[in-house]
Simulated assay, not measured.
Amino acid sequence: MKPYPLLFGPSFQERIWGGSKLKKIFHSADLEGNIGEAWVISDHPHGKSLIVNGELAGKALSDLLDLCPGWFGRSPIRSFPLLVKLLDSREDLSVQVHPDDEYASRNEKGESGKTECWYIMESEPGAEIVFGHQAAKKKNLSN
């Protein structure tokens, strides 16, 4: 099969801090709850993106890896390594802690670690992002 530009349908994720903007952006007003994330390119088992156009319509990225492995380069991969998502946070997000690949493989049921990049497309007046922390290392009280 010859490669072609793929379009993906999002997987919506409800979050306690989510809002309603993603429902409007994706013309999905029938979605219920606070939609905090739209996973627009995802091979994650909790929300796979489905191809919505062409010969592969209805297939997930994992299917594409099996059917057309050459589309992904010369090195075989077991799952698509990126998760691209849009967020709508009307409230403060939870604290984000992400393990590296080694830790995740041992402790997170074989999942990959997580490296993030954020690109802020729009924000409300007064919005802020906090990076890092001021927590002190816990002292050993048993001595």
Rank of each mutant, 00 (worst) to 15 (best):
F80G: 00
K137S: 14
W39R: 11
Y119P: 00
Y4S: 10
I35Y: 06
N140H: 10
K24V: 15
G36E: 03
D63Q: 08
G18E: 04
K114T: 07
R78W: 07
L86N: 00
H133Q: 13
S75L: 05
G113T: 05
Q13R: 15
F72R: 11
D66E: 13
P45D: 07
V84I: 13
S20G: 12
E32D: 13
E116S: 03
D101I: 05
P81H: 04
P3D: 14
S94I: 05
G132L: 11
S123N: 08
Q13S: 08
P69K: 02
I120E: 08
A127V: 03
S94M: 09
G47D: 00
C117S: 02
F72E: 05
I25R: 14
S123K: 10
W17T: 04
V97H: 08
S11K: 13
L82P: 00
N140L: 11
G58F: 10
G73M: 10
L65S: 01
E102P: 00
S11R: 11
K109F: 03
W39S: 10
P69E: 01
I41A: 04
N34G: 09
P76I: 00
F26H: 04
H98P: 00
E108I: 00
S89T: 09
E91R: 13
M121N: 06
Q96D: 04
G70K: 09
S62E: 12
G126Q: 07
W71Y: 10
V52Y: 07
R78F: 08
Q13I: 15
E124V: 11
I77G: 09
A127P: 01
E37R: 05
H46M: 13
G54Y: 03
S42D: 01
I120C: 11
P3L: 13
G113M: 04
V52W: 03
V84C: 07
A29I: 12
W17Q: 05
H44I: 03
K59Y: 09
P125D: 11
F12L: 07
G110T: 01
G58W: 12
E102A: 09
S11N: 11
S62Q: 05
P81G: 03
V52G: 06
L6C: 09
P76C: 00
D92W: 12
L6R: 11
G9A: 12
D92N: 14
H27L: 15
R78Q: 10
E91M: 12
A127N: 01
M121L: 14
V130E: 12
C68H: 14
A104K: 04
S28P: 03
D92H: 11
P3F: 14
S49T: 11
E122T: 13
G73N: 09
E14H: 14
E14Q: 15
H133N: 15
R74F: 05
G126C: 07
I25P: 07
T115N: 06
D66G: 08
E122Y: 12
L65T: 00
S75C: 02
A104V: 04
G54C: 10
P10H: 12
M1H: 15
H133D: 14
V97K: 10
H27V: 13
Y103S: 02
R15I: 04
E111M: 07
S49P: 08
G9L: 04
S42L: 10
L22I: 02
P99A: 10
S105C: 08
Y4P: 08
S75R: 09
Q13H: 13
L83N: 05
D92Y: 11
W39G: 08
V52D: 01
E116G: 02
R15V: 03
L67I: 11
K137F: 15
E32T: 15
K23E: 06
K59R: 14
